[in-house]
Amino acid sequence: MKRMGPLLALALAGAAPAAALESGELGALLAQCAACHGSDGVAKDVEIPNLKGQHDRYIVEQLRNFRSGKRKSAEMHHESRHLTDEEIEALAQYFSQMPH
């Protein structure tokens, strides 16, 4: 069995913040984020921003801007286009509460 990254492990263990989503739903979203932003919220590529410790309102605003196309990024538009406001809020809360 493949070892889980710490980010996914915390989500599946029920570590709040994102109590509004089931842990499986949050875990699936975090796995998608981890592909580029790292399993610990720290990207391995300097062109990709770290999410760990970012302010929740900043993450919410950016994800909504990617989703609407206001902020341009083909990859992020594709990833965010089906996110609900609840999912965006949960992701933002989760990443913002990770220690720097």
Rank of each mutant, 00 (worst) to 15 (best):
G38E: 01
D40N: 07
G5D: 06
F95T: 07
A74E: 12
A43E: 11
V46N: 14
H82L: 12
M76K: 04
D40K: 00
A34T: 11
S80C: 14
C36W: 07
V46M: 15
A34Q: 12
A92P: 05
E25L: 04
D45G: 02
A13C: 01
T84A: 03
A90F: 03
R71A: 11
D56S: 12
R81N: 12
S68Y: 09
A15Q: 05
R81A: 15
K44I: 06
L91S: 03
A18D: 10
A20V: 03
N65L: 06
K2R: 15
M76N: 04
E87F: 08
Q32G: 02
M1T: 11
H37M: 04
K72L: 07
K52L: 05
L10N: 08
E87P: 03
G5H: 10
A28G: 15
P17G: 11
Q93G: 01
Y94R: 03
A15S: 10
L51T: 09
K70S: 11
A15G: 06
A90Q: 00
S39D: 11
L91I: 12
E25S: 08
I59T: 04
L7N: 04
I59V: 14
V46S: 15
C36P: 12
G69P: 03
A19C: 04
E79D: 14
A92F: 04
R57H: 02
E87A: 05
K52V: 10
A16Q: 13
A20E: 15
H55K: 13
A28M: 05
H78T: 15
T84R: 00
E87M: 12
E22M: 11
R57Q: 12
K70H: 13
Q54L: 13
A90G: 09
L8W: 08
A20K: 01
T84F: 07
N50E: 03
A43F: 11
E89T: 02
P99S: 09
A43Q: 01
A43L: 09
H78N: 14
E86L: 14
L63P: 03
P6S: 11
R3H: 01
P6Y: 00
